[in-house]
Amino acid sequence: MEYTYLGRTGLRVSRLCLGTMNFGVDTDEKESFRIMDEALDAGITFFDTANIYGWGENSGTTETIIGKWFAQGGQRRERVVLATKVYEPICNPVDGPNDVKGLSLYKIRRHLEGSLRRLQTDHVELYKMHHIDRRTPWEELWEAFENIVRTGKADYIGSSNFAGWQLVKAQAAAKERKFMGITVEQHKYGLLNRIPELEVLPAARDLGIGVVAWSPLEGGLLGGRALKGNGSGRTERQQALIEKHRSQLERFSALCEKLGEKEANVALAWVLANPVLTAPIIGPRTIEQLRDSLRAVEISLDASVMAELDEIFPGPGGEAPEAYSW
């Protein structure tokens, strides 16, 4: 496994981040435990979760599974850089009218308490805003997060799904308060979604914010199986996406075959090749999927391969405004 710094911080994390969204949903507790054990043994120290995972009335299930895994001992908790998130409602009737999307100080405090209880820990290394809250002012947000950091309940604060200009506003407000602010942005990014190259990635680079890519395989579309089978079991939306990108996927599959590598690993290696990226998030449902993903950090894509990938999956043309102005 390779390691890098989390943005401008002094914290080192693995270059693959274990996403746990499937735990308790598509992956049962026993298999989830196996995946986390093997990931840790393979050197993956960066784990990502969210209080919403489990979904709906089952929100919090994933955090509960991780907490039970920590409780087994063996220095599991001490060896993991753990991230969880807050923003979505988690179907808790006690929250009453505040059981809505958002980032009020009240909600941040209450939801972190719930996350720590389920995770069976007294702190997380990284606490992320799962989405931008366009209503709550930064004075309130930073008041909440400063207290969390100073009381030791979280080491760093992160964001997810922020636009470039929102990162800038957040950091400007944090600087006024002499607070470190955002250390990492979790953003959807991959070969089939290169829009962040316009403004989010340049903003993060300039501000010293690390970027973690979620859905780098575009929901499995780049995983190599999209072109296989007769489509049974797929939703209409999934089948429509396959048809929309069929030509690209066929060219991509042929390139990967020429390289002797699996499609998913080439897609992950492409993300890893970007110096702004801290790590892609992998979300294995099975132990076999985890084992397959480990190969990605060993793949080095040369200039000719990167150029061919640019042809197959063209980006927005560079950074704004040059990408669309001239």
Rank of each mutant, 00 (worst) to 15 (best):
E236F: 05
G223D: 08
E197T: 06
V211A: 00
S232D: 15
R194I: 09
S215D: 10
R234E: 04
R225W: 12
R225E: 15
G223I: 09
R177L: 14
G223F: 11
A173F: 12
N230C: 00
E236L: 11
I242S: 03
P202V: 13
H187F: 13
E197G: 01
K175A: 14
L217P: 06
M180K: 06
L241S: 04
G210C: 03
G219V: 08
G190L: 03
G229T: 11
A226H: 07
Y189S: 04
K228Y: 10
R205V: 08
Q239R: 15
G231K: 06
E236M: 04
S232G: 02
V212F: 08
L222K: 02
K228C: 03
A174M: 10
A203F: 11
G223M: 12
K188P: 03
G219M: 02
E176C: 02
A213R: 02
A174K: 08
L222V: 00
G233A: 05
M180L: 05
H187G: 09
S232P: 05
K178S: 07
L198T: 13
G220I: 13
I209M: 06
A240N: 01
K175W: 12
G231W: 11
R205K: 15
P202L: 06
R177F: 13
R225M: 12
I182Y: 05
A204P: 02
P216G: 03
W214N: 05
G181R: 06
G181M: 07
V212Y: 01
G220T: 08
Q239T: 15
E218V: 04
A204R: 03
N193K: 06
K188V: 12
E236D: 10
G220C: 08
K178D: 13
V211H: 10
G220A: 06
A174C: 10
M180N: 00
L227W: 14
P216K: 01
V211K: 07
R237N: 03
S232Y: 15
K188A: 13
I209V: 15
L198P: 04
K188S: 04
W214M: 07
V200W: 06
K228T: 13
L207T: 05
G190I: 10
K175Y: 11
R177S: 07
E176R: 09
N230E: 14
E236K: 10
N230Q: 12
L222H: 06
V212M: 14
H187T: 15
R177N: 08
I209G: 07
Y189K: 05
L221W: 07
I242N: 01
A240K: 04
R225V: 02
E218N: 08
V211G: 00
F179H: 10
A174H: 00
G208V: 14
L227Y: 14
G224R: 00
T183G: 15
L201R: 05
G231H: 11
L198D: 06
W214G: 01
K228Q: 14
D206L: 09
R205N: 02
V200K: 05
I195P: 01
F179S: 07
K178Y: 15
A240T: 04
N193Y: 14
L221Y: 04
R234S: 04
T183A: 10
Q238H: 00
